[in-house]
Simulated assay, not measured.
Amino acid sequence: MIWKTRRLTLDLSHQARVMGILNVTPDSFSDGGEHLAVETAHSHALRMIAEGADLIDIGGESTRPGAAAVPEDEEIARTVPVIRRLRAAWDGLISIDTSKAGVAKAALEAGADIVNDVSGLLADAGMAQVCAGSGCGVVVMHMQGRPQTMQAAPRYEDVVAEVRAFFQERFRTLTAAGIAKEALCFDPGIGFGKTLGHNLALLRSLGDISVEERPLLLGVSRKSFIAGILGSDSLTDREWPTVAITANAREKGIMLHRVHAVRPNVEALRMTEAILNGTVADARPPVTRP
């Protein structure tokens, strides 16, 4: 399994990769306000890379439940300087977390390789064209509703079947729009328009929702459904359950993991892979240029 991005191609056949989360927002649920300054954001990105992240996902608009929308020019002002600074220092993979075509275009011009769109490329009619024209990697996430309302009353007849059907439709539509099959990656959108039961059903069935042999990206890091299980609102208490989910998902074949705390999740992946394969792989497998 490979995932083609604008500059580099990831081989996901044997070893899972970690995407480090870099929120340059004042209001993200976990780390809002911590990395608003360019230098602070850059230092945190380098720290995550040193801990084993192969991808850095930079977002300038919070998508937590109830979050307010951010104007396009403000989102660009938050993210593009950070992308430029990191691209000048690092040759690895940079992702822009946005649902706006204008932000994606500016980020790709600044050096990003991947567009990570929580709307599944549905929020902005121009997004598919931007992605197809750039040849970037694309993360297509499932979300029921919008961030402002998604957790009000999510309902499904069969959440696993409906998420998979969404992926199938998006695959057909986006490849018809000119996005290469190899550039697509799908995200079940844990916590985005789902109840605790929906999230657990998807986590149990991760091996059943991928389409067309495309990779899945899993983002569960520090999410509130963990608190619902543990009975604790502490973000610190969500770290090790996140690691546990990462290891369990790797057993199900999930090769991309979006997390806040990079090192413990990388270590969990390497340990799980050593058990699965009976061997110890290289710590940082190479990426290749297309």
Rank of each mutant, 00 (worst) to 15 (best):
L86K: 06
K105E: 13
V160S: 08
V70L: 06
T79Q: 12
N116T: 00
C136F: 00
G92K: 12
A112N: 15
D117S: 05
D73Y: 08
A152V: 14
E109Y: 09
A153F: 01
M143V: 07
G135M: 15
V115P: 03
A69S: 14
A128D: 03
G102V: 07
Q129P: 03
R155A: 14
A89R: 05
Q144F: 03
A125T: 15
P65H: 10
M143T: 12
T173G: 01
A69M: 12
P147G: 03
R64K: 08
R78A: 12
K100M: 08
L86C: 13
E169S: 02
D124S: 07
R170N: 08
L86M: 14
A165E: 01
L108G: 10
V80K: 15
G92W: 13
I76S: 14
A101W: 08
V103W: 14
A177S: 05
G137V: 00
N116G: 06
M150A: 05
G120W: 06
E162K: 10
T173E: 13
R64Y: 00
E162L: 05
P81N: 10
A77W: 02
A161D: 14
G133R: 15
L122T: 13
V138P: 04
A69E: 08
A88W: 00
L121D: 04
T149F: 09
A128T: 01
G111A: 12
A132I: 00
A176E: 03
L108R: 15
A177T: 05
G92C: 13
S99T: 14
A67F: 13
G66T: 05
D158M: 09
D117T: 01
E74W: 04
L86H: 07
N116I: 02
E109G: 03
S134T: 15
